[in-house]
Every structure is written in C-alpha cells, then in structure tokens.
C-alpha cells in the first residue's frame, strides 16, 4: 500500500525480499547498498542475531528519481528466512507493494524454495492478498555455485506458467541484483498507474 504525499511530493512504496533461509536476501540488499550513490540511499538497518542471521528484518531506503515532479522512494525490507520466524515474516509483509522471491539454486535447497513460496502464498492470503494480484518477481540466486540445478528445473517448480518475470543472479557478485530490483519497481509503479488499490 503506497503512501502518496502531496505535501512532500513523494511516493513511498514497500518492497519485500522473501525466500528460504540463507538464500541471499540480505546479500541482495547489501549489494544494492554498496553500489548505490550516497544521495540516493539511506542508512541500511539490519536486525540480526549474533551470528548475522536476520532476526527481524533488514531495511534499506532508496530514492529512484522523479516522475512528473514526484520523488519515488522505495523501502526495501527482507524477512527472516528461517522457518520458525514465521510470525515476524507476517508482520513484515503488512502493507507490501511488491515482493522479490529469492530462490536458492543449490540442489539441496530445492524443497526449501517450494516450501518458502507456499509460505509466502499462505501469509499473503491471511492478509487478504492473492499472490496473482500483487506485483512480484523471482530471482534464481547463487547461479555461480557448482551445485546449482538448471534454471528450467527451478522454473518448473516455482514459475510453472512462466508468467512471473524471473532473473538469474549471484547476489555475492551482484549479477542480476539490480535487474531484479528494477523489474519489481517497474511492476509496482505500473500497478500504481493503474490505480489498483
């Protein structure tokens, strides 16, 4: 649910990075933070455990530029991926405008991806959203690892209709990170244009 502020001439949108534990959600945000010019980004906040696993969320505010005199600001959040943090994931999804689902391409995480996408579907449904009705994109992360399975297999499991925009990525090196973000930002703005509330 975007916040349109005529007084500050700003549009604020909330994007959430979702996916199984250790799939690279935080690494996506860290890369975006590192590669974004100072004036376009705010402080990155990570609420993490002592072992640097996400405990509640990571947060990164970004400014993308102006559209017709309105500043477009995106608030990027990650959820904690570990299964037992489901209550926190539900909280972070509230008011979401778009989702990046980060899938882990490693063979041993195949089932975890499917479970996490089901979990996303369920948590959205609980809040009255339907996954087919919100802007979302898929990222097949860790493509650089030797144990990654072919994209076709991941696509068959996670994007069987092929209707969802999907991207190959390696968040560690940055490959595909900005492509994913831009695609989602575009979908969200297009949704706003439609005025579909």
């Amino acid at each position: 649910m975007a916040f349109i502020n005529y007084s500050a001439r700003e549009i604020n949108c909330k994007l959430v990075y979702y996916g199984p534990g250790l799939c690279g959600k935080t690494t996506n945000l860290k890369y975006i933070y590192e590669k974004t010019a100072g004036e376009a980004k705010g402080k990155m906040i990570s609420l993490a455990t002592e072992t640097e696993r996400t405990l509640f969320f990571d947060f990164l505010p970004l400014s993308l530029g102006e559209i017709r005199g309105f500043k477009t600001r995106f608030h990027l959040y990650t959820v904690p991926g570990q299964v037992f943090y489901d209550a926190s994931r539900k909280l972070i999804l509230k008011g979401v405008d778009g989702v990046v689902f980060v899938a882990d391409s490693q063979e041993e995480r195949y089932e975890a991806n499917i479970e996490s996408l089901d979990n996303l579907r369920g948590n959205l449904r609980e809040q009255g959203y339907h996954i087919d009705k919100i802007p979302w994109v898929l990222q097949y992360n860790k493509r650089d690892l030797p144990n990654s399975i072919p994209v076709e297999e991941l696509r068959e499991a996670l994007n069987p209709t092929g209707k969802i925009l999907d991207f190959e990525a390696s968040a560690q090196t940055g490959t595909g990170v900005f492509e994913t973000l831009k695609a989602l930002a575009k979908l969200v703005l297009t949704e706003l244009k439609r005025g579909n509330k």
């Binding site: 349109i4 005529y6 549009i11 993308l64 530029g65 559209i67 017709r68 005199g69 309105f70 477009t72 831009k182 930002a185 575009k186 703005l189 297009t190 706003l192 244009k193 005025g195 579909n196 509330k197």
Partner: peptide, 18 residues
Amino acid sequence: GADSPFAEISEDDIDNLF
C-alpha cells in the same frame, strides 16, 4: 484513484526512471 499523480504517467515515464 482518478486523481492519483500516477494516473497520468506513461510507460515512458517509468522507463526513464531506469
């Protein structure tokens, strides 16, 4: 939503942002 500032923007406006 008719008076949303986004009602009149074009695909090009969005593309230009990127």
